[in-house]
Measured scan of single mutants.
Amino acid sequence: GHYRIRINGREFEIRGISEEEIRHLEEALRNGADEKILKEIVDRLRG
Rank of each mutant, 00 (worst) to 15 (best):
residue 42 V to W: 13
residue 44 R to S: 08
residue 1 G to V: 05
residue 1 G to F: 13
residue 42 V to S: 03
residue 5 I to T: 01
residue 24 H to P: 04
residue 7 I to F: 09
residue 22 I to D: 01
residue 44 R to C: 09
residue 1 G to P: 11
residue 40 E to F: 14
residue 24 H to F: 15
residue 39 K to C: 14
residue 18 S to D: 04
residue 12 F to T: 01
residue 15 R to V: 10
residue 5 I to H: 00
residue 35 E to C: 11
residue 12 F to V: 05
residue 39 K to F: 15
residue 5 I to S: 00
residue 23 R to M: 13
residue 45 L to N: 03
residue 42 V to C: 05
residue 41 I to G: 01
residue 12 F to R: 00
residue 6 R to M: 15
residue 47 G to K: 10
residue 9 G to K: 01
residue 46 R to H: 13
residue 4 R to H: 14
residue 33 A to Q: 07
residue 10 R to H: 14
residue 27 E to R: 10
residue 42 V to F: 13
residue 29 L to W: 05
residue 15 R to I: 12
residue 25 L to E: 00
residue 47 G to V: 12
residue 24 H to C: 12
residue 19 E to I: 13
residue 3 Y to C: 04
residue 36 K to Y: 13
residue 43 D to K: 10
residue 27 E to G: 06
residue 36 K to F: 12
residue 36 K to M: 11
residue 17 I to E: 01
residue 10 R to G: 02
residue 30 R to L: 10
residue 29 L to M: 11
residue 47 G to F: 08
residue 21 E to V: 06
residue 4 R to Q: 05
residue 20 E to H: 10
residue 34 D to M: 10
residue 20 E to D: 08
residue 18 S to F: 03
residue 9 G to V: 01
residue 42 V to D: 02
residue 45 L to Q: 03
residue 46 R to A: 14
residue 1 G to Q: 05
residue 34 D to Y: 15
residue 34 D to I: 14
residue 23 R to V: 08
residue 41 I to V: 06
residue 21 E to P: 01
residue 30 R to N: 09
residue 19 E to M: 12
residue 29 L to T: 03
residue 21 E to C: 12
residue 19 E to P: 12
residue 30 R to A: 12
residue 12 F to M: 03
residue 18 S to V: 03
residue 2 H to C: 15
residue 31 N to D: 10
residue 20 E to T: 09
residue 39 K to S: 09
residue 13 E to T: 08
residue 11 E to M: 11
residue 7 I to Y: 04
residue 30 R to G: 07
residue 14 I to Y: 02
residue 30 R to D: 06
residue 32 G to M: 06
residue 2 H to T: 08
residue 46 R to N: 15
residue 9 G to P: 00
residue 2 H to Y: 15
residue 40 E to M: 14
residue 12 F to C: 03
residue 31 N to T: 12
residue 20 E to I: 07
residue 30 R to H: 09
residue 42 V to T: 04
residue 7 I to Q: 00
residue 1 G to W: 03
residue 39 K to P: 02
residue 47 G to H: 12
residue 8 N to C: 11
residue 27 E to I: 09
residue 11 E to I: 15
residue 21 E to M: 09
residue 43 D to L: 12
residue 12 F to A: 00
residue 15 R to T: 06
residue 11 E to G: 01
residue 28 A to M: 15
residue 40 E to L: 14
residue 17 I to F: 04
residue 44 R to F: 13
residue 41 I to Q: 02
residue 27 E to T: 12
residue 13 E to H: 13
residue 32 G to L: 06
residue 36 K to R: 13
residue 43 D to G: 07
residue 7 I to T: 01
residue 25 L to W: 05
residue 43 D to I: 12
residue 17 I to H: 02
residue 6 R to A: 05
residue 43 D to H: 14
residue 35 E to Q: 06
residue 27 E to D: 11
residue 29 L to Q: 06
residue 23 R to K: 14
residue 16 G to C: 10
residue 37 I to N: 06
residue 26 E to W: 11
residue 24 H to Y: 13
residue 3 Y to R: 02
residue 10 R to K: 13
residue 36 K to L: 12
residue 20 E to C: 07
residue 19 E to H: 08
residue 38 L to A: 03
residue 45 L to A: 04
residue 45 L to T: 03
residue 12 F to E: 01
residue 4 R to W: 08
residue 22 I to T: 03
residue 5 I to V: 11
residue 19 E to S: 10
residue 14 I to S: 00
